[in-house]
């Protein structure tokens, strides 16, 4: 079954397909530029020892972002 969640709700080792990046402005654009576009698959690799940020794999590389930013990323699980 397909459900839409925000990226910060995913647990390590879960993966999803990006459906939308919410928001606007510089950070929004940065996420797009880094390859977080609709249809890309994204894996949550791990959470930092202190619980934030998270390390995700997108387009074959590792990207780290805070849960706050991740909450703007909607994925299909």
């Amino acid at each position: 079954m397909v459900t839409v969640k925000s990226l910060d709700e995913l647990k390590p080792k879960q993966k999803g397909i990006i459906v939308k990046i919410k928001g606007s402005g510089a950070t929004h654009r940065r996420l797009l530029d880094m390859g977080l576009v609709k249809g890309s698959s994204i894996d949550v690799e791990r959470v930092a020892p202190l619980g934030d940020p998270i390390d995700v794999r997108i387009k074959g590389y590792h990207l780290s972002l805070r849960k706050e930013e991740a909450s703007n990323i909607l994925v299909e699980v």
Binding site: T27, R30, D55, L63, S64, E69
Partner: peptide, 8 residues
């Protein structure tokens, strides 16, 4: 500001 960084 937000934290978005590549991990090489």
């Amino acid at each position: 500001s937000p934290f978005v960084m590549e991990l090489p």
